[in-house]
Amino acid sequence: MNLNAILFFIKETLIGLKRSSLMTIIAIATVSITLILLGLFMLISANLNKVTEDIASKLEIRLFLKPNLNIEDIQLFRRKLKAIDGIKDVEFINNTKAWKSFQSDYSHLNLKQYITDNPLPHSLNIKLEGAQDIKSIILYVKRFDTIIDDIVYGGELADRVEVFRRVMAIGGWSLIMLLILASLFIIVNTIRLTVIARNEEISIMQLVGATDRFIKGPFLIEGFIIGVLGASISVGLLYFIYSIAIHQLIEKMPFFPFITDDASLIYIYGFVLISGATIGMLGAYISVSRSLKMR
C-alpha cells in the first residue's frame, strides 16, 4: 500500500468520524463507561489480591517433631522441606530455646517448681509462599510420621482464604469477560450504524473494484480511534478516582498493603487502553464483515 492510499484511508476515516459525530461521541462514552467499570474492577481485584496474598504469606505450618531425633536428622529434613515448591522458608526451633521463651512468657506461673524437664519437643516452622499450597504441603509432610509428632496450622483460615481467592478469580474474570462482551456489542452496533450511514459509499466502492480490505480499513481505524479515545477518558478518570480513594483508604486502614506502586498501576491502565483499542477494532471488524457479507 502506498502513501497515497494511506492518506486516503486516514481522510476517509476522519470524514466518517465527522459525519457521524453524534454516534461517535455516544460510542466513545459507552466505551469509557465500560472501561471505567473494567478498570475499577481490576483495581479493586488487584488490591484484594494483594491483601489476600498478604494474609496468605503470613500462613505458617508448625511441625512438632518426635523426641530423640538428632539435630543432623532434623536439619536434613528441614532442608528437604525447604526445597519444596510453595515453601518460602523453614525455621528450626530448638526445644531448649522454645522452653526458655515459654518460661519467660509465662514467668508468673513459676513453672520451674512443677516441671523440671523440658516438656517441649523440637519443632519446625514452615512459612508458605501462598495459601493455595497449604493442603498439598500438609498431605506431603503427614507422610513423615516417623519424624513428625503433630502438625498445627491455621487450617480453617487457610481454607477460607483459598475459597475467597478462587471465587474472586473466577467471579472477577467472568465479570470482566461479560463487561468486554457488553462493550463489544455496543461498538458492533455503533459501527453498524456508521456502516449503514455509509452503505451507499460501500456499494460504490465495491462497484469500482475496491477490495474488502480497502473497504474495511477506514472502519477499523474508526473503531480503533473510538476504542482508544474511550479508553483514554476512562484511564484519566480512573487515575483521578483511584488517587483520591487510595489516599482515603490508606488513612483509614494503614495496616492493609494497598497498591500504590507505579508499575502495577501502569499495567492496569495499559491493559484498559489495549482493551479499548482491541474492542474498538474487533467491534468494527465484526460489524463491517457482516455488512459486506450481506451483499
Binding site: 500500500m1 502506498n2 497515497n4 486516503f8 466502492m205 469500482v208 473494484g209
Partner: peptide, 10 residues
C-alpha cells in the same frame, strides 16, 4: 474515487 480504490498514485 475509482482510482483511489486501486491505489493509483495521486
Amino acid at each position: 474515487f475509482a482510482l483511489h480504490v486501486m491505489h493509483v498514485p495521486s
